[in-house]
């Protein structure tokens, strides 16, 4: 049996000792590692969350990937190319973390392309101008950082370590986005309009990235108890808004929320309510680009099948030849 990547232990009924040991490890804020005993619910929750995160990285390559071939300067082309490549890398780190829990990447990919596992709703919105590349870096990667930096302390070791690596790279992503927007805001009036238009379109979907409000997020409490998640959706959303407001001021753009204002008493910004019905529709598959995103991923996977098979066949032939050579 595979020794590095644990197979799922038989059942939860592994005995009170194991459960106690697990609980104590979590309570001491120590990491659970692949071969430790863990409750089945913990394993399943983690696989679902990590897979969804990995899928988001891979599907998330598409909206920006569209602009690599069209980037208006060679410097921007190189930066965007490197960024989208990083996302493939992040997806791979995360699938690799999921595999330490006994999941299989081919199986997770099947689940994605059959629509049985989700990815972040944000990637179902279209990218309409090059300013979108900047705004995705600023908002979407900014929101991802808010979500992910706490996950560097997630209780599951391989996930936490993958997040450390990813967060460092995301930081480069956010900065390149903001820098692009600053450059565009110093450019022509047309460019400034492009930036404001992109801000208007991406603001609310970005707030929705943190998930439904806490009172409508049934799984959050258990995930927080297990220290898989460290902060609630609303907490992270508020943190993102507080950070972004002053960045928007520096940039000279207006965030499209008339209710947005500083609340001295709370020490945070008040802001409007995202359209949760829209979020639900997009999650259920009715966003502007759901079909297109899934179709692209499915096609790439299916059209790559003969390549993967050929490599497997060649490796088998090589092994057989080597064995024959050894015998002879």
């Amino acid at each position: 049996m595979d020794t590095t990547h644990s197979s799922p232990p038989g059942a939860d009924g592994a005995g009170p000792d194991l459960q106690q040991h697990f609980d104590a490890t979590i309570a001491r804020d120590q990491r659970i590692e692949p071969r430790d005993w863990m409750p089945e619910g913990y394993r399943k929750t983690l696989i679902r969350q990590i897979a969804q995160h990995a899928h988001s990285e891979i599907i998330g390559m598409q909206p920006e990937g569209e602009w690599i071939t069209r980037a208006p300067s060679l410097r921007r082309k190189a930066i965007l190319f490197a960024k989208v490549q990083d996302e493939a890398g992040h997806g791979l780190y995360l699938y690799s973390a999921a595999e330490t829990l006994g999941a299989d990447r081919a199986d997770l990919t099947e689940r994605l392309i059959e629509g049985r596992q989700k990815y972040s709703s944000i990637f179902n919105y279209p990218t309409l101008s090059f300013a979108d590349v900047g705004v995705i870096g600023w908002f979407v990667d900014g929101a991802a950082i808010c979500n992910q930096v706490p996950l560097c302390r997630s209780s599951y070791g391989p996930y936490a370590r993958a997040m450390v690596r990813i967060c460092k790279e995301e930081s480069f992503h956010q900065r390149q986005g903001y820098e692009l927007l600053m450059t565009m805001m110093r450019g022509t009036p047309e460019q400034r309009e492009m930036v404001q238009d992109a801000v208007n379109r991406w603001w609310w979907p970005s707030l929705m990235m943190f998930g439904p409000p806490d009172d409508a997020s049934p799984n959050s409490a258990q995930s927080m108890a297990w220290k898989i998640k460290r902060h609630s959706n609303d907490e992270l959303r508020r943190r993102f808004v507080d950070m972004t407001v002053s960045q928007a001021e520096k940039l000279g753009v207006t965030l499209p929320d008339p209710e947005l204002r500083w609340n001295e008493e709370r020490g945070h910004h008040d802001f409007g309510t995202p359209d949760w019905d829209e979020l639900m529709r997009v999650i259920k598959g009715d966003g502007p680009c759901n079909d297109q995103r899934m179709e692209r991923r499915r096609t790439a996977h299916e059209e790559g099948a003969w390549v993967r098979e050929a490599a497997t066949a060649h490796a088998a032939k090589q092994a057989a030849r080597a064995e024959k050579g050894a015998v002879a």
């Binding site: 590692e33 370590r161 690596r165 480069f172």
Partner: peptide
């Protein structure tokens, strides 16, 4: 129940550097 860090992040040099921007 081994405690080996089986997914240790490697040296920082492999990352792109955000302070470029």
């Amino acid at each position: 129940d081994e405690k080996d860090p089986f997914f240790e992040p490697s040296a920082d040099k492999v990352y792109r550097h955000p302070t470029f921007y």
